[in-house]
C-alpha cells in the first residue's frame, strides 16, 4: 500500500519535472541510476548475508533463545541477534508477535525489535561511506545503548 503511494508520488513529481525541464529531468534520472549502481554491490552483499543469517536463525531457533523464562540472558541474546541482523519490518513484527505468544517477555521482544530497526552491524560499512567511520560507529553504539535502556524500562512497565 505504502509502496503504491510512493510510486504515485514519484510518478507525479517526475511528470511535473519533465514538463518543466526535460534536460534536468534526464539529468535527475541519470543521477538516480548512478547512485543506485554505486551502492548495488553493497546492497546485494547485505541481502545475501541476511538470507544466510535468517536461514540459520529460523523462527524456531529465535523463539527458543528468547522464549519463556529466558530473563536477562534472553535480553542479551535479543540485543545481539537484533543488532547483527537486519530484518524488514513486515517479517520482524509477526516474528515478534510469535515471540510474545510463545512466552517471551515484553522486554526481550522490545529489545529485539528496537535493535533490529536501529542498529545494523551488517550495514555499518555502507553507513560509513556516507557518514564517516566515527559518526557511523557512534550512531550505532548510541542506538544500541538506548535500545537496552528503553527495553529494560519497557519490560518493567508492561
Amino acid at each position: 500500500m505504502s509502496t503504491a503511494a510512493l510510486y504515485l508520488i514519484t510518478a507525479l513529481l517526475l511528470l511535473c519535472s519533465f514538463r518543466k525541464d526535460r534536460r534536468k529531468t534526464r539529468q535527475a534520472l541519470k543521477k538516480a541510476w548512478k547512485s543506485f549502481e554505486n551502492i548495488l554491490p553493497q546492497f546485494l552483499s547485505i541481502l545475501v548475508l541476511i538470507g544466510i543469517m535468517l536461514a540459520v536463525l529460523d523462527r524456531e531457533t529465535i523463539t527458543r533463545l528468547l522464549g519463556a523464562e529466558s530473563g536477562a540472558s534472553g535480553m542479551a541474546v535479543a540485543a545481539v541477534v537484533g543488532s547483527v541482523t537486519l530484518i524488514p519490518g513486515f517479517i520482524a513484527f509477526p516474528l515478534a508477535a510469535s515471540l510474545l505468544s510463545s512466552g517471551a517477555g515484553y522486554g526481550q521482544t522490545a529489545m529485539f525489535l528496537t535493535t533490529l530497526m536501529m542498529v545494523g552491524l551488517v550495514t555499518l560499512p555502507l553507513e560509513t561511506t556516507f557518514f564517516g567511520k566515527r559518526l557511523a560507529v557512534m550512531r550505532n553504539a548510541l542506538a544500541f545503548l538506548y535500545a537496552v535502556i528503553s527495553s529494560v524500562v519497557l519490560g518493567v512497565l508492561l
Binding site: 510512493l6 510510486y7 508520488i9 543521477k31 538516480a32
Partner: peptide, 15 residues
C-alpha cells in the same frame, strides 16, 4: 521500493 526512492533522490538533487 528502490526505483522510486532513487528517482526521488535524483529529482531532489537536480531541483
Amino acid at each position: 521500493f528502490l526505483p522510486p526512492i532513487f528517482i526521488l533522490l535524483g529529482l531532489l538533487d537536480v531541483w
